[in-house]
Nucleic acid binder design. Structure first.
Length: 452
DNA sequence: GAAGATGATTTTCA
DNA sequence: TGAAAATCATCTTC
């Protein structure tokens, strides 16, 4: 469609509109000093339209320049009130559809999720110790409450703080831009309301649209921030998996406890704490270690027996006094450090002392002590874990007065160790001595040392 | 680099 | 909820 045709179409539309305007114009007639005749009016409208067409062909800058200069002329034009009235009428009709679209939308669940996550991670919301509380929580969870892995911790905190800062800077920028743009648009609309009917509701709606657009951008920012936090978190948690073996000393301490409590290797919370303190590891690591140890002990009882012998021998050596030149100086001298003063451990630690003090006179030689323990245990026969630790020798009992842990057959009740819910479960794996055989030799083949 | 050891995590169960 | 069992992932040793 060329300009000429467009012009003709507009003219015919305006002519039709004009007829309706004429009816309303009666009210304005007093404002018009002279009512122009029909041909004159048509000519005038034609001129206006011609001007409009010219404007449409202009660049924005040109149009604006003309607009500024011509605004006053337009406002003072005698046709303005009539045209304004028509526009008001049209507006009235269209505003209905606007109202329909102005329904309040419920908050976006996705946005709520993101907000909640950012608050939980300490990125959004009030600053909780520099956004480090989440980091602290994560670290505490990772380390079982011990402040180990401090490097990772501070790294995590630093990175999280960085994310938080970027997030807030960007958010501030977006909010500022949003406010500036909204103000600009509102001013523009108010300005335009002088030449076309703009209801306050419409301005509100426009503001709403702008805010919605900006909140979509904000959502992207929140999403990116969440992703960054998740990546940081996963890296941090992955690093947690990088384990380190416990120190030799810690392993010694744990093994000593385990084999000296073989009848019930379930340390109480207090004992765990004590062990944790001694080994410089966490309570949960202690729990892990004992869980693994029990399982692996059951699975490989043969090796466990050797280990039990070894620790029994060590205990014997330690109890027999300071190392002689023949003794291995590297061997730790600790025995049942936890037990002394505690119910089970004290008894069993005492047992080692009795074993050496009473039954092994002059036995300050480690090799002899070891031989003695092994001989007491009846060697490394697979069925004699009890003896392997030198713990259940009836002759020893007689001589020392020490009464070893006796696990009665299920149902007979009574244990020397603290009764607990594990005894039945573990009983099948611990060195057992039938009470009828109390004074029989530990390497007696009838000895019902039960292994799985 | 393979194999075994070992600490941590996950799943299952009582 | 804690422990057993299975499994994973890393470390250590050869």
């Amino acid at each position: 469609m060329d300009d000429q045709q467009r012009l003709m179409q507009i003219q015919s539309n305006v002519a039709a509109m004009n007829n309706s305007v004429m009816g309303q114009q009666q009210g304005y007639e007093n404002m018009q000093p002279t009512a122009p005749t029909d041909p004159d009016r048509k000519q005038e409208i034609g001129d206006i339209l011609q001007q409009i067409m010219t404007i449409t062909d202009q660049s924005l800058d040109e149009a604006q320049a003309r607009w500024v200069s011509g605004k006053h002329t337009l406002n003072c034009h005698r046709m303005k009130p009539a045209l304004f009235s028509v526009l008001c009428e049209i507006k009235e009709k269209t505003v209905l559809s606007i109202r329909n679209t102005q329904e309040e939308e419920p908050p976006d669940p996705q946005l709520m999720r993101l907000d909640n996550m950012l608050i939980a991670e300490g990125v959004a919301g009030p600053e909780k110790g520099g956004g480090s509380s989440a980091a602290a929580n994560a670290t505490a969870a990772a380390s079982g409450g011990q402040p180990d892995g401090a490097i990772e911790h501070s790294d995590y905190r630093a990175k999280l703080a960085q994310i938080r800062q970027i997030y807030h800077t960007e958010l501030e920028k977006y909010e500022q831009a949003c406010n500036e743009f909204t103000t600009h648009v509102v001013n523009l609309l108010r300005e335009q309301s002088r030449t076309r009917p703009i209801a306050p509701k419409e301005i509100e709606r426009m503001v709403g649209i702008i805010r919605k657009k900006f909140s979509a951008i904000e959502m992207q920012l929140k999403q990116s921030t969440c992703e960054a936090v998740m990546i940081l978190r996963s890296r941090f948690l992955d690093a947690r998996r990088k384990r380190r073996n416990f120190s030799k000393q810690a392993t010694e301490v744990l093994n000593e406890y385990f084999y000296s409590h073989l009848s019930n290797p379930y340390p109480s919370e207090e004992a765990k704490e004590e062990l944790a303190r001694k080994c410089s590891i966490t309570v949960s690591q202690i729990s892990n270690w004992f869980g693994n140890k029990r399982i692996r002990y059951k699975k490989n009882i043969g090796k466990a027996q050797e280990e039990a012998n070894m620790y029994a021998a060590k205990a014997a050596r330690a109890a027999s006094g300071p190392p002689t030149p023949h003794q291995d100086p590297s061997t730790p001298q600790s025995t049942g450090g936890y037990g002394i003063g505690s119910s089970q451990g004290g008894m069993e630690a005492g047992m080692y002392m009795n074993l050496n003090g009473d039954n092994y006179q002059g036995g300050d030689n480690s090799v002899n002590a070891l031989r003695h323990v092994i001989s007491q245990s009846g060697g490394y026969t697979p069925d004699s874990v009890a003896s392997s630790a030198g713990m259940f020798d009836p002759h020893l009992q007689q001589m020392t007065g020490y009464r070893p842990v006796v696990i009665p057959p299920p149902g007979t009740g009574g244990l020397d160790v603290e009764e607990d819910k594990h005894e039945e479960n573990w009983a099948g794996y611990i060195p057992q001595m039938n009470q009828d055989d109390e004074y029989s030799d530990s390497n007696d083949e009838d000895s019902p040392n039960k292994t799985k």
